[in-house]
Amino acid sequence: MNNMNEIGATEKRKNGSLPWKSLAVVFVVTLVISGVVIFFVLQSVLQLDANNQYNSVVLENNGGVRDITPPRDLQDFTLTSNSGEPMSLSDFQGKPLLFYFGYTHCPDVCPISLNDMMKVRELLGDQGDDVNYLFISVDGERDTPEILNNFFEMRSVEDVMVGMQGDDEVLARVGSDYGLYYELQEPDANGYYAVDHTANMYLLNPEGQLLSILAYGTEPDLIAERIQKLLDES
């Protein structure tokens, strides 16, 4: 009799515990399903955000012209100009400034960029004189003021261009403002060496802030259009 009672009590305990186990299983399954749903929702949101970010980059880099919004303040710096006198970046304030980093012994990229810069000036017509044009050398050892002047005279831009003789210490300090990179290569048997360097142009507004980064090869008409807009707003 006692055995029967114990068996009955055991059965009751078992029967009574089944609903709790079922509830526990349902609870765990619900948590898993909820976690999966939340995961995919978050993935969708993150993917949408990534797509929006990508689209904004594409819009900013229209044809190689990347506008900086808002315009970025820059560190001032002073280098020796092609006149042999010290000149600072802040000296160009009051007009838009179009410039690039290069070196006079450059066989292709730098002369092409200079030519594009002069095309921009031509496209601006009479307002071409309302813009400053600057060449900053990353090869200060060779690009003395005399060499800079010869470089400009050979291309008949001596009345338009201003040159600055590079200084490694100064360029190292301010280079991060422009994403500047340059590296002198090993000289050949004749002592000639090339310089790998950033090939962008940069457009500053009359307040001396970085307004646009212009990738190498950007069509001059797009650059002129951007400068014309800036001149109209000034």
Rank of each mutant, 00 (worst) to 15 (best):
N115F: 14
M118T: 01
M1N: 09
Q43K: 15
N149S: 10
D116W: 02
V29G: 05
S22I: 15
V174K: 06
C110Y: 11
K12P: 01
L59E: 12
N2W: 06
L23S: 14
R13Q: 12
H197R: 04
F40L: 10
D76N: 14
P145C: 09
H197W: 01
C106T: 07
F39Q: 03
M201L: 15
I38S: 08
L148E: 03
V25Y: 06
D177W: 14
L203N: 02
Y100A: 14
P111F: 06
Q165E: 14
T218S: 09
V58L: 13
E146H: 08
L124C: 01
W20H: 09
V32Q: 02
T69F: 13
V58T: 00
S90I: 13
S88K: 12
N52Y: 08
T80A: 01
E6I: 14
S44M: 07
D126L: 13
V162R: 13
Y100F: 15
D49M: 05
T198A: 02
A9T: 13
Q228V: 04
K95D: 00
M161W: 06
L134W: 07
D73T: 15
S44C: 08
E158M: 04
D177G: 12
M201S: 15
M4D: 15
I223K: 04
Y216P: 00
E186C: 00
V138M: 06
E141C: 07
T10Y: 15
K12S: 06
A199P: 00
G35M: 05
N51T: 12
E225K: 14
I136D: 09
T198Q: 02
F77K: 07
E183F: 04
D167Q: 11
T198P: 03
E207G: 03
I223W: 03
L48M: 11
S113H: 10
D130E: 09
A199N: 04
Y133A: 03
R226A: 10
M161S: 05
G16F: 08
D116A: 05
L203Q: 02
D49T: 03
V28W: 07
P220T: 00
L222H: 07
V157Q: 01
L31T: 13
F151K: 12
G8S: 15
N132Q: 08
D232A: 10
L123S: 10
Y54C: 02
I213G: 00
V65K: 04
Y193T: 00
M164R: 08
F101R: 08
E146R: 11
R66K: 12
N15S: 09
G64I: 11
F135Y: 11
A9L: 14
E183M: 10
D73I: 11
E169A: 11
